[in-house]
Design a protein around this nucleic acid. Structure first.
Lengths: 230, 230
DNA sequence: CCTTGTGAAGCTGTTCACAGCC
DNA sequence: GGCTGTGAACAGCTTCACAAGG
């Protein structure tokens, strides 16, 4: 009775690390389905997703018991269950703020436009960009955010502005009613409680690789096998 | 002799989680330096970097004792020390494979072109792209990789191809002598031992946000404060 | 006083190894 | 026999709280 790890009022409590891997399993299952594989073992699926089989089974166990012992997992069934838990049975419209190179690239990025997610609007503050058409969408002004968010019932936004503009973008998004933000800008944005922010920092990833490269080359004799997680 | 946690032959053993945050500290320090701040406390720096002060101090303690008790950290001095540990005192040339929307965006991305890192070459397999100029660089064929890697002494590459082409790109990069890869393609690439691969999956990030959104809306009464790490 | 640097505690995530079930 | 599901051990990361030192 001390710790109740199971679930809170009917909703399963899935660890964050597991949530982050579920989309990978989903993609691996889609790939297997394309190859007309109907059933697969944890080992096969784990290989396709690039993880350890034990980890995969542990992850899936947080969702429920969707496999068959001695057999494996039904590809389509498991696929549906994961999609369900991830919230992909409903459609999500997102808005992208900042239509520079990155914002334009994201607008047309497959995977942003599939998996239940679709880019519904593009916003920028630059008057020369407002009104132009990118990836089939007309860029609108920041002032139009509240109306757009309400019209499309948007709760998720992407910030792809330069660093200094990110906080202003976040403020505008929160004011407009957005509650989850994916931030690509190289800046820390602060938001009220209850708003989710995830940060993806492209240059940081390269700097991490550079660190490991430097470390490799500074060790004349490589002592042990090291791995960097994918 | 069982576990030797400290260091291996003069080289400090910095935890992976710490390495991933050092670039953030570096950026925060740069920002403070721009505002002519000469000294800062762990609390100030932590706020600027968006982390807990205790975590910041712990992280810095892996590099050495660069602060002054009762005073704080010298901004320029700490900045140099972190840059040094991250390997930014040397220049890194990188090659980008795949010059689609994302690859083009990355080519011109500031932060890819600063911090000791610069994009030295762009590679694609599409004959209609080869020879075109993107972000000041002429796109070359995949066959030219070995020569390019050797000429620029490149050890770090970025894969920005469609998913199905990623493994071929990785194979070509490894064959050409690249030892670290940042993979933006929605696919698992397998590489020989000793090659570092980091994966950034843009659509996965959105799916994670969608999960949390769904969870929020399915809970009529929000039970507890939850946070999503940045 | 002040703030850093750090053992120690606690938490989260991973891996193992095997019981349970087909 | 084979494979899933899972307790338990393990490893790594975070946070606390305080000693060390300006």
């Amino acid at each position: 009775m001390l710790n109740r790890p199971e679930r809170i009022e009917g909703t399963r409590n899935i660890p964050e690390a597991t949530v982050a891997r579920l989309p990978l399993y989903l993609r691996a299952l889609a790939s297997l389905a394309d190859q007309d594989v109907a059933v697969c073992s944890s080992k096969e699926l784990a290989t396709a997703a690039g993880v350890n089989p034990a980890k995969l089974r542990k992850d899936l166990s947080y969702l429920g018991s969707y496999g068959t012992r001695g057999v494996g997992y039904d590809v389509e069934y498991l696929r549906y269950q994961i999609a369900r838990d991830l919230g992909q049975t409903q459609a999500w419209d997102v808005v992208i703020v900042g239509v520079g190179h990155l914002g334009s690239a994201l607008s047309g990025y497959r995977g942003f436009t599939s998996r239940g997610i679709s880019v519904a609007a593009l916003v920028d503050t630059d008057p020369t960009k407002i009104g132009t058409v990118v990836a089939g969408l007309t860029v609108v002004a920041l002032d139009d955010l509240p109306e757009i968010v309400q019209r499309h019932d948007i709760s998720i936004a992407v910030i792809a502005t330069p660093g200094p503009a990110a906080q202003m973008a976040a403020d505008a998004l929160v004011a407009a009613g957005v509650t989850s933000i994916l931030n690509f800008a190289p800046a820390i944005v602060t938001v009220p409680d209850g708003i989710n922010v995830r940060k993806v920092d492209l240059s940081v990833e390269l700097q991490i690789l550079a660190y490991h490269e430097q470390r490799k080359s500074s060790l004349a004799a490589p002592e042990s096998d090291e791995e960097v997680a994918g």
